[in-house]
Design a protein around this nucleic acid. Sequence first.
RNA 1: GGCGGCGUAGCCAAGUGGCCUAAGGCGAAGGUCUGCAAAACCUUUAUUCACCGGUUCAAAUCCGGUCGCCGCCUCCA
Length: 479
Amino acid sequence: MPTLRFYNTLTNWKEDFHPLIPGEVRMYTCGPTVHDFAHIGNFRAYLFEDLLRRTLKYLGFRVIQVMNLTDVDDKTIRKSQAKSMTLRDYTAIYKEAFFQDLDALRIERAEVYPAATDHVPEMVELIRRLVEKGHTYEADGSIYFRISSFPEYGKLSNIRADELRAGVRVDADEYEKEDVRDFALWKAWTPEDGEVYWETALGKGRPGWHIECSAMAARYLGTHFDIHTGGVDNIFPHHENEIAQSVCGFGTKFANYWLHNAHLVVNGEKMSKSLGNFYTLRDVTSAGFSPRVVRYFLLSAHYRQPLNLVYDPRAGVTESLDAARSALGRLDEFRVKLTELGRRSAAGDLQSREVSDLLDKAEEALVAALANDLDVSGALGAVFTLVKEGNRLLASGEMTPTDAVAVNDKLQRWDRVLGVVEPEAETGVDAERIEALIRERNEARQAKNFARADEIRQQLLREGIVLQDSPTGTRWKKE
RNA sequence: GGCGGCGUAGCCAAGUGGCCUAAGGCGAAGGUCUGCAAAACCUUUAUUCACCGGUUCAAAUCCGGUCGCCGCCUCCA
């Protein structure tokens, strides 16, 4: 097995990975704030984390992943109030939608999805520890973390107090903070919070945003664990603050490796509602692209590289997703041929030397790429090199039925880490009727009645069914 | 202004000291095959890695500088 290496934001270096407990990886991944549908840029982050956990498992590690659900913050409170709903009812809608999207995108479930509102006692306990150790101060009933009490503050992001851009707004209602980087651990209740509050030892109020991750990570992973991930935008202040809270509160180290994914950009611009280039998974699937195509696209570039989605459906521009769909189509065609040939294999048949060498080399290339800081482009390169070589052997007749089974098995095995090989289940298609029409067409072709044959081809084409004749029979697929 | 990332073919995108006269995908051109149509296969599509210096026997890869792009700088993955 090649050495597994990750780029660690903490050290700005690609490092060899060594988990705290051999063979086991504990990771915390920042999850969604459930006040709206997640957009496909958000899913790039969750897909990166999915690739990370699948890669670790593929390489033989046991993985314990925790992803938080942030179901209380200013925005969420405001939006639920606007709908006259309780916080719980309101966030339930988006929690459900989030899990539907995860399933559609074939994102493996984490081991635990703790919701912030279910862990207030743990947060209160951590804040209490921070108060005891003198890392906090109180102002108007709210409790703030005092940055100056933690000399290591800024190590992750390399941001120093004197480097913060001068003149940038300091929220008017936070004038009482001693340092602009100080942040709220506990927010005292205000009338705008309405029904949203907890009566605790700290008073009536609600937790600050950062504290949930420190508290829930400790609860499910321990205070010192292996990997923490999130989008680059979280480096400062969120992750910096998590480190401060956890290290000061628990007195242990926090995460050993920090991995951050770059953003998805759309036509070279940041995705935002105001620019009108803001897309949810629902938007893209209703434009005719399957979640599998979206998964392939979002996964295809290295996670630390900004990924550009060339997409403007109103102008008919769908380049990126078209390319992804074509590439998957090529893979699907290959697998159909392998399956057809594989059916003729018999027990005791030998695999050819050439194919087994090809598979060994491909496996080596795939694993080496993934172990190198999740170089998924390199891994897909290995997949398509196998497709290309395999097609060559198929065309020249050098591939035996047993070889075909072996190649197909290999692709299926790889799908455990890639999650893009299996085609989407066809829905709304009457396969028996189509096959009956294909039989009729082939009889017509035998009888040289090509007019009838073409008629059937056209009829099916109107339904979006494409026929492909081959020496071994006629295949069909939905376009 | 500070911090971080990045600039590789028409487009997307790997490769971070020698196997690179640079993977893979999309697109394009020619050919083989084919009742039609497609797929597949073969060939072609970067002697070059933003630019300029330097280190080295050897650089897309390391160092310095220049130009350009993106992100973060208080709650956005």
